[in-house]
Design a protein around this nucleic acid. Structure first.
Lengths: 169, 169
DNA sequence: CTTGGAAAGTCAACATAGCTGACTTAAAAT
DNA sequence: ATTTTAAGTCAGCTATGTTGACTTTCCAAG
């Protein structure tokens, strides 16, 4: 079923596929994600917002004018769950929702000045940690990091990720 | 800090530190983590367990006989939160808690046969995804992946991660 | 044109899993 | 003997996920 500690199968360059190596990768992913979210979480905890608000701000900033439905697909939560978050962000004046011109069922989302300010603060902290990690590991490690992460995504999600990279909404 | 044997450290090869590149890394991390947890989540959702139970099973399996306090430090949650999870796992016969021999205040945690079976199922699914990603990206990418993740952890967490790698509890 | 279905969004109610604070019990350390 | 530590419990709060039921709007088939 799974090879637990046997000799490396089929040559020495498959060593990185032993269960032991895979487990290390799994734990690295777990602990690194904690660090990844730590700084924004700290900032948000003081103002009664959470990670969900951060994610919404991030992607609205990334794709101004996006519809609720589009945001839903990217975040991978139910519309009811997202709606609760958006309602607060709109009530607090961080996000602006405009009825669609062509299709009045749609709501197009934008950040207000205030929303942009908070998004900047959050992403600045998160970028600082990422920059430190990138700098410590070097360009080639970064390339490998991105390759493995991309390969780890679900296919559909990877397509969304790649579309985002190209600046399409 | 500096990469060994890469191109000379001029101005241009710091391109991977632009805000744009960092943002791509941030989004890759976000989407990849979704994939990372997707398979265990699917398995667990059918049996009224959640991610918290998975994490507890993983680390008890990893460090049999660990104390509650040690597990607390590794998981980074409050004892009340962990206790809710452990109580269920013990009641359901997945985890065994034994009073310490030397220090009777401590409880040492072990997986039962049933607990080991579930842990195997969960980690098998998660390893399969990791294996696929590793295989697609190749050994050098994997090395870079791990370097960046380690650099992304909080210092204290990184020490715990490295201790785990060496098999200490 | 009307009507019926589909799509987008909203409201209500519930579950999970974090959190803090206050407390008990037992054992170890001082 | 007193204090500290490890573990556990109870109560209550928050954030964020879920389903189900609903309204408004759009579009297309009859």
């Amino acid at each position: 079923m799974t090879d637990t500690g046997g000799p490396p199968a089929g040559g020495e360059n498959l060593l990185f596929l032993t269960d032991e190596q895979l487990r290390k990768g799994i734990e690295a992913m777990f602990f690194a994600y904690r660090g990844f979210t730590a700084d924004p979480d700290r900032i948000l905890s003081g103002m009664d917002y959470g990670r969900a608000h951060h994610r919404a701000l991030h992607f609205i900033n990334r794709m101004p004018g996006t519809t609720v439905n589009n945001l839903l697909n990217i975040l991978g939560v139910t519309k009811q769950s997202l709606n609760r978050v958006l309602r607060r962000l709109i009530a607090d004046g961080l996000v602006v929702s405009r009825v669609g011109r062509r299709d009045k069922r749609e709501r197009h989302l934008y950040l207000s000045e205030k929303g942009e300010a908070l998004e900047r603060e959050l992403s600045k902290a998160q970028r600082a940690r990422m920059r430190k990690a990138y700098r410590a590991a070097g360009p080639e490690a970064v390339a490998g990091f991105r390759q493995v992460l991309e390969a780890m995504m679900d296919d559909e999600i990877r397509h969304q990720y790649l579309s985002l990279r190209e600046g399409r909404s």
